[in-house]
Design a protein around this nucleic acid. Structure first.
Lengths: 240, 240
DNA sequence: TCAATGCTTCGGTTACGATCGAACTATGAA
DNA sequence: TTCATAGTTCGATCGTAACCGAAGCATTGA
């Protein structure tokens, strides 16, 4: 006993409902103030403050002072990855929130996962990219092919610029609602920003939902077609 | 708020020190009785019993009755994967156990991670397999090459038999002590059993440490050589 | 300087859950 | 049968941590 890293500590940090709600809210990717997080957690500002300092001390959160505001965000990519991991696991065991609520369907369709597209549309996009030979999948690993690089550059994305970042270009991220992988990494992030820039979609206030315009939706579906019957082999193997 | 899966529930399950210790003990891969787990958790049998039923209700554990014993084990591969994820994360933030203890170095050198080899030797093995072209790495994904299949078959492993299982053949697993990937999946499991079968190594009692015999160590190092200077490119990229 | 806003710290209350002793059930052995 | 071992359930205790009201800082703006 007493071997290895202390998983209890970070488990306890995530294990409190109020903190879990705050972390989930921060999965939206944008930094939030203590007041906003208190609301997200369903608690008063005082209580939220102590929670936030614990989360920060635990290395899950980073804060940035700006004027009299204090913005909190997930400390780094690794935290988002961890949370999404746990979400996928929890969803797989049926540990869903008690009341599905009216926003559930929208969340399942398209939502932001830290900084990239998730949900039905996120999974569809990756499927389509793989089917088109733009991304090759080996087990859980993804990589952009030459054809894919050419294709994305042609729709106005700066792929070479993305390559220069330290962050991996492509990463697969398990989608908790679809139980399949979607595209994360700097490419996943860039694609989503691209959709926002083009006005195809926008974020819903105070939610992780992403709302496509009818025109944006049409374009998106055209850009990432899928054959409805055949699912990608590597993809379905990764689910097992 | 109230969106998505309930991460607090499983966070809380892992967040209790006694439960975390029991789960860590079960990362050794073998099923343990309630009494053994109570000892691992540093609590009485009664307390352990309530913890175990909570863990089982939460879907983390599976139990199997055998005579008057009740054996508990991690519910499935996904639980092991989740725990190793959290361990890697915790270790990365410096959330290590307070007292390093005398067994720490042995754990870092070679240990069992659910059912495969981890630690310095685990990472070395994967590095070597990649360098030799036996396994190809794309991002986080791993796959066995034809050359690798031939090579492993030649040292007496039934690779075709492994392929027939539903479980992925190769999977990368983040090593918390080395902060690099090692080999998991059915192949990782089979390789470790192979070492045990050959008498190269054995498990230390009541610990996750793996002890190599001097002969076994010599053979292992010869079978999986590494050029000390160059590290694999994909490998180091995956760390970022 | 004063007021307003955003957040933290302090103090006291409360509730939950971890804990264990004791009693109870189940399986196996004598 | 009876005894021993393995484990669960019950009841009571106790500690910790979540919680909020109130007071205290800090920053901004007037």
């Amino acid at each position: 006993m007493k071997e290895g890293p202390d998983i209890a500590q970070i488990g306890a940090l995530i294990g409190d409902p109020a903190r879990a709600n705050m972390l989930t809210a921060l999965m939206g990717g944008r930094a939030l103030t203590a007041t906003e997080l208190a609301q997200a957690g369903g608690i008063t500002l005082q209580t939220a403050s102590t929670h936030l300092s614990k989360l920060e001390a635990g290395g899950l959160l980073a804060q940035r002072k700006q004027g009299r505001h204090r913005y909190f965000a997930l400390a780094d990519d690794g935290v988002g990855k961890l949370l999404e991991n746990i979400m996928g696991f929890a969803a797989g065991r049926g540990h869903l929130r008690h009341r599905p609520g009216p926003k559930e369907p929208a969340l399942r369709k398209a939502r932001i996962c830290y900084d990239h597209l998730a949900g039905d549309y996120g999974v569809r996009m990756l499927d389509s990219l793989i089917a088109a030979g733009a991304i090759s999948a080996v087990g859980d690993g993804l990589s952009l092919t030459e054809r894919g690089e050419a294709h994305l550059t042609s729709i106005g994305m700066d792929v070479t610029g993305l390559r220069s970042t330290r962050r991996p270009l492509c990463r697969s991220c398990l989608d908790w609602s679809e139980r399949r992988a979607h595209l994360a990494g700097s490419l996943g992030k860039a694609l989503l920003s691209n959709f926002f820039d083009k006005g195809w979609a926008r974020r819903l206030e105070n939610s992780r939902s992403i709302l496509f315009t009818s025109e944006g939706e049409r374009r998106f579906l055209a850009l990432f077609p899928v054959e409805t019957d055949a699912t990608n082999k590597e993809q379905s193997r990764a689910d097992a």
